[in-house]
């Protein structure tokens, strides 16, 4: 796939933005409310979702993987990579699938993605700990994903609308 210079630049900016958001997220750990280590709200999903709508599936996935790899380098531990990759990739795949189903708005796609993100993270926790006890957090996290998903969808909708006026990615 050949990227236009403008798209390439956008990819880079978005990766940096996603990275910034996930670092920022570390400053406000959800774990005070949901004491499950490694679990993130998924603010960086805004970027993933935006990239999916603006650039398409393949660039969005690239941005996501780049963000996860760089993010774990910053955090400096491998289990963080597993958490963000499993959460991120699962969310990505679900969002791609949901978006293909033309009936949903960005909100539906976003909520589905947020739920998948949390399921992926719990999956990572089960793998890391070799213990299913953490599955007990899933119902709560799924509930939380309704809120974060709606929020992410709202912000993405605003961004996409703004981009339509800018015509940055359209030729």
């Amino acid at each position: 796939m050949q990227l236009k210079t403008r798209q390439l630049a956008l990819c880079a900016i978005l990766t940096a933005l996603a990275l910034g958001l996930s670092v920022m997220e570390n400053l406000f750990p959800v774990t005070a409310a949901i004491p499950l280590p490694g679990v993130k709200l998924g603010l960086a999903n805004i970027v993933t979702l935006f990239a999916l709508y603006e650039l398409g599936a393949a660039p969005a996935l690239t941005i996501l993987v780049a963000r996860c790899l760089l993010g774990s380098l910053f955090a400096g531990n491998a289990s963080a990579l597993l958490f963000s990759l499993m959460g991120g990739v699962l969310a990505m795949l679900v969002m791609i699938a949901l978006k293909r189903w033309q009936k949903l708005s960005v909100f539906g796609v976003s909520i589905g993605g947020a739920a998948a993100h949390n399921i992926g993270q719990i999956g990572a926790a089960v793998i890391t700990l070799g213990d299913t006890a953490v599955l007990g957090y899933l119902p709560i996290l799924l509930g939380v994903s309704l809120i974060t998903g709606t929020l992410t969808g709202f912000i993405t909708a605003l961004l996409v609308r703004a981009m339509q006026n800018l015509h940055l990615s359209h030729s």
Binding site: K103, L104, G112, R161
Partner: peptide
């Protein structure tokens, strides 16, 4: 044209998550 406003179908996703 991406759908930017919530649709009735979105509530299906909400319901599914619940």
């Amino acid at each position: 044209s991406p759908k930017l406003r919530p649709t009735a179908w979105d509530s299906l996703i909400v319901l599914a998550v619940i």
